[in-house]
Design a protein around this nucleic acid. Sequence first.
DNA 1: TATTTTGGTTTATAAAATAAACTACTTTAT
DNA 2: ATAAAGTAGTTTATTTTATAAACCAAAATA
Lengths: 94, 94
Amino acid sequence: MFKDLDPILHSQLRLAVMSLLIGVKEAEFTFLREKTGATAGNLSVQIQKLKDAGYIEVIKQFKENYPQTICKVTAPGIKAFEEYVTSLQSYLGK
Amino acid sequence: MFKDLDPILHSQLRLAVMSLLIGVKEAEFTFLREKTGATAGNLSVQIQKLKDAGYIEVIKQFKENYPQTICKVTAPGIKAFEEYVTSLQSYLGK
DNA sequence: TATTTTGGTTTATAAAATAAACTACTTTAT
DNA sequence: ATAAAGTAGTTTATTTTATAAACCAAAATA
């Protein structure tokens, strides 16, 4: 009847981050913060969770003297996102 | 970019309940419990929240000696569900 | 009449989201 | 050179949610 929704993805901010990453394949922390409108603290926590789940890869480096955090979606992340979307259908009728 | 997701509906169980109610227009507590697989306690709490939000109407009566809780979706509930689905599109790409 | 079952509610606990505070460094202005 | 302000985050604390466990009242059953 109703398929379980992946709790990692069933979060407004994490879903937005995944949605963005699937579109661009790679993005900076600041880009994600601007696009989602999230606070840096919240974004930091949610990125960590997506990383822990293996849904994204996080690369920390320096760019023009400043720390820079780059995020990339992984293959399992794409799969999980697709499955989440499929599962959602069961709730949305038809 | 990303539309806010109604927090009342962005819950697996509450979304399932709304999905069921939109299909049938009226349902018993026990029906909802069976279809969703939720525990009675959890379902009781979530039904209360949907009621507090004005998304469903709850009628408590007795049927063949037993208490019976009937739930019906309201017009604002249907509207909120539809808006939730629309908002979700912004996360699912395309 | 004791036990189990039905149909729930209430309370307690665990997990999640969010905000506030903090770290570490850089740039700019004085 | 030094203070103030800005960048790019992380950590910690607080609030909110979700979930489970315990409970309640009445009815059915043994």
